[in-house]
Structures are given as C-alpha cells and as structure tokens.
Design a protein around this nucleic acid. Structure first.
Lengths: 160, 160
DNA sequence: ATGACTGCAAACTCTTTGCACAACA
DNA sequence: TGTTGTGCAAAGAGTTTGCAGTCAT
C-alpha cells in the first residue's frame, strides 16, 4: 500500500477564475474529457509566460499553486493542449522540447551558443512548399521555420 | 588496468579507398586534425545513405567494417562533420537527432504519426526572414523549415 | 458509481563526460 | 615521441510507462 497526495479539487481556492480557460473547458466537454485543475492551471501558466517554456518550467510554476503536480501529468497535459490546438510544441536543438501558447503563425530564432529561443514575427510564405509537399502525397499540417545562429548577446560577447 | 579494443589502423583493408572523402581529408589537414579511419568511414556511411540517419544507425553500419567503433566517437565525429560543413543535423521531433550528408539547402517533411522524415526539394525564400532576424540583432546562420503532417502511407492508412 | 485522470516510481532512450590507452603525425 | 583521438563505463537529462488510488461527471 502506497501513500498518495490528494489531488486538488476543482473548487479549490487556487483555481478561482477559469474564465481565461473557457476555450479549454468547452473543448474538453466536447470531447467528453474531464476538466481538471491541473489542466486549467497548466494552460494558464503557459499563457502567462511571454517566452516559451519547458515542461519542467511549467511544472515548477504550477507547483506553487498546485502542490503535488507531477511531471507525467504536465507532459500529458501539454501534449493534450497541442492536440487541441491551444499550444505549440517547438523542437529547438537537442535539449528539452519547448511549449508555447502562441498558436498564431510565427517563426523562431535559436542561438546555437546559449540555446536561447526568440520569436520572429515575420510573414513566411510557405504556400509553394506546402503545395510541393502535397504533390508528393504528404498531407501537410503546419510548417515551422527555425533560424539558427547567434543571439545578440552571444554575438557581442564573441566580438569582444 | 582495463582492457581496450585496438583501433583499426588507417592502412586497414577496411578503409581502402578514401578517394570519396578527399574533402574531409583536406579539411582535417588544414585544421591540423587527424585523419582517422573512423572519421572516413562515418562520413562514407553517412553519404552512402539516401535517407537521414541517426547516430546509432551510423554506428551499426560502421561496426560492420570497423568493429569496436564506439557511440561517443560517432557523436563526436558527426558533430565535427557538421562543423566542417560536410553534414547537417536535423532536429525532427523529440526522438533522436538525424544527420544528413546533403548539405545543399532543402527542407524536410516529418510525419507526426510514424516519425518518417523525407526531403523536400523546393526553393524557400528565407531572405526576408533572415533580414528581419538580423534587424533584431540576431546573427542568422541558416534557416531550416520543417513541415509536419501525415506521410503518404499514414494518410492512406488513416483514410481506410 | 464509474471510468478518466493523477501521483509516484522507475524504466527507457538519447547524449555527454572522464579517464586510460592507442595511433596519427 | 607527443598529442589528438578512441574505447569503455557510467552519468546525466528528458521523457514515457505501469500501476494504484482519486476525483470529475
């Protein structure tokens, strides 16, 4: 017999206003899936950050208001959010995967020295590429551009 | 005292004709680095494959002609080849990193179901993106586009 | 009440590191 | 001969899996 932390109930004072997560709630109900405090808070934390976050960063943040939240739950929830179209997963280099609540199209710049990832809000005309992909029998879903190089800080350090 | 496998000497019958790796040899000599049979064979194996390969696939292939080749050596060599501009590293999804001897610009399609990675030989006009990146202080190095979706086989299976 | 979800522990994979020996130059 | 490179073992990081117990519905 093992000892388990109790889950925090939905009515918990830590999960007061799920107004911001209405979209998640209705998507979950549509699919017959449950609305849990973990799911609400993980999305809230992801949205609160301007920068991309790793699963572990999200977990640390969620732990403050929802102690006991486990890493497997964070991973499962982030993957669920991606599936629901409420988050994006960015594979930048070998390290940890990044998650981002900004789902509107934008590109990323990855520093090859410090690993920093920044957004690049510039239009990308991926149309011809997607057409070419379709032509080969592939069913394209989305296109993601990653620009690698040196971030401003690392470039300056290296010049010195 | 530990027991070590002997390295295979350069003159080994397994590394007969390094003609195809002349570029690697001269690059190494320029930098004062050594020409080893591991480096020659790893590049040869990488070039022999039409598809991208993981470090472990390369190791398995190299092991046949050069028993004892170790994983750390394969990783170090692949990274060296990338640094020398003779190979490319592709980060497609969470799994293993892929390496590719095709260094001329081309894009990749990743199947979100089976993980298959295919080349897409289509021009990508990343100029404006790179300019925008430069404008923000970033020093762009290269741009890589990954299109995710369903490969032909998986799309067909799913339709059935 | 019941089945989906969570926490926990541990396994798994990929990659990197430290050190002793080997081999290119 | 000197120093770079390699093999080996093991550590490290990130992620996934199995199972028992819990909570939204």
């Amino acid at each position: 017999m093992r000892h388990y932390n109790k889950c925090v109930k939905l009515g918990s004072p830590n999960v007061r206003s799920p107004d911001q997560e209405r979209d998640l709630i209705s998507l979950l109900r549509e699919r017959g899936q449950r609305v849990t405090s973990q799911r609400l808070l993980i999305l809230r934390e992801l949205r609160r950050r301007r920068r991309h976050a790793t699963a572990h960063e999200i977990r640390d943040a969620v732990l403050r208001s929802l102690p006991g939240t486990s890493i497997p739950t964070v991973y499962a929830t982030l993957e669920l959010l991606v599936e629901l179209g409420l988050a994006r997963r960015i594979d930048a280099g070998a390290g940890a995967a990044l998650y981002d609540a900004r789902v509107e199209p934008h590109q990323h710049m990855v520093c090859r020295r410090c690993g920093r990832v920044d957004d690049l809000d510039e239009e990308l005309d991926a149309g011809p590429l997607l057409d070419a992909a379709s032509g080969s029998g592939f069913q394209p879903d989305r296109a993601e551009l990653v620009i690698s190089g040196l971030c401003a800080a690392c470039a300056q350090e290296r010049a010195a």
